[in-house]
Nucleic acid binder design. Sequence first.
DNA 1: GTCTAATTGAAATTAAATCTCAATTTCAGT
DNA 2: ACTGAAATTGAGATTTAATTTCAATTAGAC
Lengths: 140, 140
Amino acid sequence: MQNKIFQNFLGQKGLKMTRERFAVLEEVSSVPVHFDPEQLYARIRESGLKASRASVYRTLSLLVESGLVEKVSRSGRGNIYEHTYGRRHHDHMICDICGEIIEFYSEDLENLQLDICTSNNFKGMSHTLEIRGHCENCRR
Amino acid sequence: MQNKIFQNFLGQKGLKMTRERFAVLEEVSSVPVHFDPEQLYARIRESGLKASRASVYRTLSLLVESGLVEKVSRSGRGNIYEHTYGRRHHDHMICDICGEIIEFYSEDLENLQLDICTSNNFKGMSHTLEIRGHCENCRR
DNA sequence: GTCTAATTGAAATTAAATCTCAATTTCAGT
DNA sequence: ACTGAAATTGAGATTTAATTTCAATTAGAC
Ligand SMILES: [Mn+2]
Ligand SMILES: [Mn+2]
Ligand SMILES: [Zn+2]
Ligand SMILES: [Zn+2]
């Protein structure tokens, strides 16, 4: 369970599991898959839980470091995150018109990237592929 | 020549070719391939040319729209751009340690993306693939 | 329970980018 | 070359996302 994973991660780094960090992790699990930090902060305030904006941002960084959350997008102004617990890696298509986010995964594509890294003597550790265009609905 | 292309683009939109826009385009051609707006602004100031920060940002948007410049990524906070005139599309590997940017291109990878778009009824218009990790030098 | 290092939150700060609007410039029409 | 309408500019204000500061609080090892 992600709680234990996070607690473990914190322990390894000599950090403490606080009620604020717990609140952020809790909300990360119930928020829509793709979210931004301000959204998350607003929802924490609405729910009974409490955590300051500073703690939300600070905890989000820790969650990314622990692998429970990933930074998704590099197109808009602010960052978009998604929680990854129980979900496998995938990439995204984003509709320029309606903003819909479509997730996809291709083994071939992943392998091709491994090959490219190898031939460049590069040790790839993560990647982001974002395809922008028009989704099915907006096409017309 | 990119000058004519930009002038043409502006004409189509009922916009004017000003000395400030010319200065930005001029500097975009002599700056390192990958640059950020503040860098560009600083260099314009150093050279004899003139353009305010506002104009630099405004012109950069127009250059992106015209296809002469592309947004590459967001390193930390700000955007990174590159000029594309006379260069073909490619993607990037970025070293987490030294920041080196390695360009690569793979026909197979591009085709695979086309297939993926097709099978999702998505009209892909652009994409960004960024692979992060450790470069040859930093590996060790 | 004690103690100490980690953590918190409100507010200040930073940084990138955008906006405002009076003054200036471009350029199509003549 | 002249004119005038519309586009553009720049200094500084504003917005936005995120980070920093630091006194007060808290977690958790002992
Ligand atoms: Mn996703
Ligand atoms: Mn490049
Ligand atoms: Zn759409
Ligand atoms: Zn490196």
